[in-house]
Design a protein around this nucleic acid. Structure first.
Lengths: 255, 255
DNA sequence: ATAGTCCGATTGTCGGACAATATAGTGCCC
DNA sequence: GGGCACTATATTGTCCGACAATCGGACTAT
């Protein structure tokens, strides 16, 4: 393949951008929100008012509002009629990221690598700050993993374990990073547990060690246990005879 | 606060969800896309056709389409009129995540911790697979960092360095995770460079070491150099006398 | 083949309309 | 005065019909 730019024609002129009014209106309101002129909880003007202010038809305003609504920047609370400014929820954002990744056909190994990077640090952070109450919550989840009757239940609890860990770490960035990954990884975990019987107990052991390290405030131990735990997960996957470049499906994106 | 559930009234019945038609239509189409019945590149029917099929007015269809458009699930290519199914672009998703985090007032330390977790692994992965061409690209960026005239230019190139690294790692999950973090971190980096003169050369040194480790396919070295690099960044931040719990602003969310 | 012209299809926006219902009064009773 | 039913108003969700702009093609002349 010729690597050089085709020199076809230097893009002498940009394609001038003619955005529809609804788009521009959405952008303007969005900027107001991002710049904190409009803050979460504030009421938006009514559609009619907005239409007057922007000097456009109400239909046009509505399209802009649907845009913002979909972006999670505005929404309703309760059965209310009025639109309020809202901060995009983590859950929603995470699910959107998950969709993006799923539609991109990311592979198991890519997700696993992300897990490999994030989870140990999360464990370490939690071990640094975790309170007794936190440990109790984690233990509750671990025993739920143990006593779960169905495989699906167990998997859900494992996901919950990671989620709670991220929450307790107090780091919202890592929390947001972890959420889509665990969600997308869940179906793989499910298959793995089905095919590798000892997998579940191995998970339990690892979780216990991690929780123990957190209880004793030993970040390094928590981190290394988590690293082993994640690596063990991968080994289980290989044991189950599943290719590492398996594409994760849309699965569990019920929304 | 009374922790027990108020027992106020057992929610015998859910508040039945009466979603507006536009919302339901968006959901139906979204499902079709997620289930791959509609695949990226496919043309959507025209608004009039959709209106007929759903037996609603065209305005209603339009609101649904604006929703999907904002979600990045459909869009136009070129100056075309027809809507096509598109996969949500990484850039767009990343910028959305960035917005969520910014509106959440995440602090510098949270972002840094994410960087601390992800960047070293990314460097290691790239070192495993990096080709000579890849190394050349990284070197180009490093020298751009060196020769950048303005501080802003240098910062942008540093962001670019991390972005390219993530891209070369071949892991789209990590790439997507890294993008919003570096973007949000950029303003802090800018301030740091302003106040700590030697910061820039330290960054250069670290980058050179990292690239070198990648060239020689030494993942462990790349990882540990990157770890040091990230930690150095934090030290610079402290040196600059900026509090670790500084909230990152919306900054650089020009979109 | 290229450029010019014409026409139908499609989108973006408009103005007006109406049913359903959330919200704000308003009056009534205790 | 406070609580409650009831009414009036405002607001949203949806529909209808319309029109300018423009995109996509077809068709033609060079």
């Amino acid at each position: 393949m010729s690597e050089s730019t085709p020199a076809y024609k230097a893009p002498l002129f940009e394609p001038l951008a003619r955005q529809p009014a609804s788009h521009r209106i959405a952008t303007v309101i969005e900027q107001k929100i991002l710049r904190r002129s409009l803050r979460p909880g504030d009421d938006l003007p009514t559609e009619t008012e907005l239409a007057e202010q922007f000097a456009v038809n109400r239909s046009t305003v509505r399209e802009a509002l649907r845009r913002l609504e979909s972006a999670g920047l505005v929404g309703r609370e309760g059965g209310s009629k009025r639109l309020k400014v809202t901060r995009p929820g983590h859950a929603e954002t995470a699910s959107r990221v998950g969709r993006t990744l799923a539609l991109d056909d990311v592979t198991f190994i890519e997700l696993w690598e992300a897990m490999r990077a994030v989870a140990p640090r999360v464990a370490a952070l939690t071990a640094e700050q975790g309170s007794a109450a936190d440990v109790a919550q984690l233990e509750a989840i671990v025993s739920a993993v143990e006593t779960a009757r169905s495989a699906d239940g167990a998997v859900n609890q494992v996901v919950e374990f990671f989620g709670k860990l991220a929450e307790l770490s107090g780091n919202r960035v890592l929390q947001l990073a972890m959420q889509p990954v665990t969600r997308l990884l869940a179906p793989s975990l499910r298959r793995m547990i089905d095919r590798v019987p000892q997998g579940r107990t191995r998970i339990l052991v690892a979780q216990r060690c991690i929780v123990e390290a957190i209880r004793e405030h030993k970040p390094d131990e928590a981190e290394s246990w988590m690293t082993r735990h994640v690596q063990d997960f991968r080994r289980g996957y290989e044991l189950a005879g599943i290719a590492l470049d398996t594409k994760v499906g849309v699965g569990s994106m019920a929304d």
